[in-house]
Design a protein around this nucleic acid. Structure first.
Ligand SMILES: [Zn+2]
Ligand SMILES: [Zn+2]
Lengths: 492, 492
DNA sequence: TAATGGGTGCACT
DNA sequence: AAGTGCACCCATT
């Protein structure tokens, strides 16, 4: 196993953008043919988001004039749309075989507790679980001073205890695909309306620890004990490296890394060159552009302030794959994120080079079927949502022009379908269990100035793909395709 | 068993206002002394409602200027207050011994399904169940016409299916009193934001029927089969007479009948003479007055329209006890409710005469303990909430002056504590299982014009009390006490 | 304390 | 980001 020594500051987002369903981690007990399992289907992100938008239901009867759809078309309301509806579909891959629905939540908790994200189930189903951040109720003791008029009876009872309910838009959707016989896990909206602080005292975490004890998962227990210790004494939290050791992954291909600029201000001009849209839309509007999962625009008006920065993004680590890294000024030892120049760090799938991460012997089909979560070792996948408190701010995107066309993104998509090939060292018979070695500095919020951090919007997306071996020969990289890049033109 | 042949039109309210906790139906397994069981405690309704108002919590942080309490003091907001917060605490008595919490819902469903009220549990606890009306989600297919601008992609998907959620204020609270070892069942807010239509196709009703089948409750099954049949063919629904045959009720005293005027318009002046308030309030404001559970003011601006009226209020039936019936023009065969004059039909507890309903042999204590719900026969208690769609209308109560004082109602309350005696034929040794024989025309809405019915606000409250036999000697009636009446002075 | 109120996790539908 | 029925909670008094 490859240990990654580099560090990434807290607020980066390492996202696994994954459009290609992989059967490598699937429970194949019910699959009929190996052929169907290996069918790789590219589902455009744009289409998926359109569905989400169109199936959104109003809880109350629609207000006659305040139509959500209007926000999509008027540029002056784009900022609101981005704040509230800038969805990113971040597919998590690889995912272990879950023999039971109840195994998913602990698996996600292993990943998200160190990120300071306390997950609860919002809704679940036989084939679906929607996770969200645990609601935080904060009772306040505010005296109702406006009620003194002639209700002497209730002066002592005028104290109200309003409860502040955190209504965070962050969601993780785990859905079981009957077709693919696998659980797909997708981060739906990688934004939070609150700070993400690891709280060892939360009930969910206690239940999680009890689960670990019940599962005899001593490794994970030790990891979290270390996390608790460091949190308690405000020690710098070493990056947790979560990987997939289930041995069932035939291969993992990184194909999408989106690194937003940390210093893009509201006056920066962002020129989007590509757009993922599967042809339904004739005229691509700015609003439509915002629906793209891989084109989340992040506004970074704030200045990030660290009291102490000791974690760094190591671009030299081969396990961290940053698209167009040649255009990135290697930050080396980053002591102030304001100094990082992320210009032109956007990239899309087909420019993602692939690295062989890890090679294991592919188990037999029977072994795959019986492989359970117990054999799965979490220490490579870390997904750190950022955009903390994004919803608390009105980001003005008016000066940004977004000119991506559907054709552009379709081209990218089509090329990524069979255009990624390089860097895979595996022959057709040797299967690889390639994991995403994403290094992330877990939340150590005690070192950070939240007020300013809230304005920061670092978004570091590492793309990863799991491609069945049958399709390996079709893959190639087009790292320098000009249509392949997002361009950031500063207006300042 | 006395069958009641009279009929009461649909929209009347028969409420069992019951302030005196009775131990007659309690599970006495854990009671220590018989003395404590017979302790009758009068709890003022006003006090209870004040508590409810003061402990109301805001789900969101309080809006700085829009304070709920302000509505209590400004007369121009009184109508809103009445629409949303005119609570009535209607205690249901007698109540059988519930050996399990799960027995309560079917018991209530037997009562409320024929009223067209589909109950579900809003929240439950070891010692509490809050029932509410089942939310009705009505999907509508409205085309979003404001979104055609440049989103040709989604024109076909712009159809929104908003869901109209019935947010009915009606609540029933069942709470287990550890002290009394009994379940108390209270209708908290006897108003509905919707029509109450018996729906034999509802899921809750299907579950209820399955429960009846599982319980081998053939009598109730037959009753509801008849109800279904009559509903299906729009036949006039004969009144369901629900009684308590558990044999555990020592006695039932009717003590409160409130018959609102069906034709009181918004310009009618309602002069309230009494007020229930236990002395906390120094100055009784109009807002405070509205908190009285027994002083629900009903505004009847609409004209009730029946296509066919075949059910009648039979005031000659001895089982229907209407306070101050002498002031009521006996409607006889009512063919148009507009012709009923309900003026001065309000009454309070101490003017309620008592009738012996039914006499059974009091079982031994051991028998009481083992008496279960299976031995309980429901066919006498019917509680029909009305005020349908009250919340949909803004009722202007500004022209109404409400001058009831706390002293007035306290006098009523105190007198009712030991002032009801007459009409009980049972000696101290002969215990009676007296049930409320309330006759109610179940909802047959196909005969009614809903649009106009919504404006109607019939409120027919039958008061009932369960008094332990030890207290019988203290009871007497004061039917002609002038302080005992609500006065309605028409301004028209 | 017991009584009473409400928040919210989450699976059923 | 299904809505909601329901129960496990907690808060206040
Ligand atoms: Zn969150
Ligand atoms: Zn209702």
């Amino acid at each position: 196993m490859i240990e990654i020594g580099s560090n990434i500051p807290y607020d980066f987002v390492t996202s696994v953008l994954h459009n290609t369903p992989s059967t490598s981690h699937q429970d194949r007990r019910f699959s009929r043919t190996e052929l169907s399992q290996n069918m790789t289907k590219i589902e455009p992100i744009q289409k998926e988001q359109n569905i989400k938008e169109d199936t959104k239901k109003c809880k109350n009867p629609p207000k006659p004039r305040i139509k959500r759809e209007k926000l999509f078309t008027t540029p002056d309301k784009l900022s609101n749309f981005l704040n509230h509806d800038s969805n990113k579909l971040i597919h998590l891959e690889p995912v272990p075989i879950f023999n039971d629905k109840s195994e998913i939540k602990p698996w996600l908790q292993k990943i998200f507790f160190p990120q300071g994200i306390d997950l609860v189930i919002e809704r679940s189903d036989k084939s679906k679980i929607i996770f969200k951040c645990k609601a935080v109720t904060r009772p306040t003791n505010e005296l109702d001073t406006n009620n003194i008029e002639n209700n002497d009876t209730t002066t002592t009872e005028n104290r109200r205890t309003p409860i502040i309910t955190t209504n965070c838009p962050f969601r993780i959707r785990a859905s079981y695909s009957l077709k693919l016989k696998k659980w797909n896990i997708v981060i739906v909206n990688n934004t939070h309306s609150h700070q993400c602080v690891f709280n060892p005292d939360s009930d969910e975490y206690k239940k999680f620890k009890n689960h670990l004890i019940a599962q005899n998962d001593t490794d994970t227990i030790k990891e979290f004990e270390e996390l608790e210790y460091k949190t308690k004494f405000k020690l710098p939290i070493l990056p947790k490296v979560i990987s997939c050791d289930c041995g069932l992954t035939s291969e993992v291909n990184w194909f999408d890394v989106v690194i937003p600029e940390p210093k893009i201000s509201g006056t920066k001009k962002v020129t989007k060159k590509t757009n993922i849209n599967n042809g339904n839309s004739v005229a691509t509007t700015a609003a439509n552009t915002c629906n793209n999962s891989s084109t989340t625009l992040n506004n970074m008006n704030g200045n990030m302030k660290y009291d102490s920065i000791s974690n760094f993004l190591d671009l030299n680590n081969p396990n961290i794959n940053i698209i167009n890294s040649k255009t990135v000024t290697p930050p080396g030892n980053i002591t102030n994120l304001d100094e990082i120049d992320f210009t032109n760090m956007f990239a899309t799938k087909k420019s993602v080079p692939q690295f062989k991460k890890q090679t294991t012997t592919k188990p037999s089909l029977k072994q795959q079927q019986t492989a359970s979560l117990d054999e799965f070792n979490f220490n490579k996948i870390i997904t750190t949502p950022s955009n903390d408190n994004l919803l608390n701010y009105s980001i003005d995107f008016n000066p940004l022009s977004q000119d991506f066309t559907d054709q552009d993104l379709n081209m990218i998509l089509n090329s990524s379908d069979n255009g990624i090939d390089a860097f895979t060292e595996n022959g057709p018979e040797s299967t690889t269990a390639t994991t995403l070695d994403t290094l992330m500095e877990p939340t150590d919020l005690s070192y950070m100035d939240f007020v300013t951090k809230d304005d920061l919007n670092l978004n570091l997306n590492y793309g990863m793909d799991v491609t069945p071996k049958d399709h390996q020969s079709q893959l190639k990289t087009l790292p320098n395709d000009p249509n392949n890049q997002f361009m950031f033109d500063s207006l300042m």
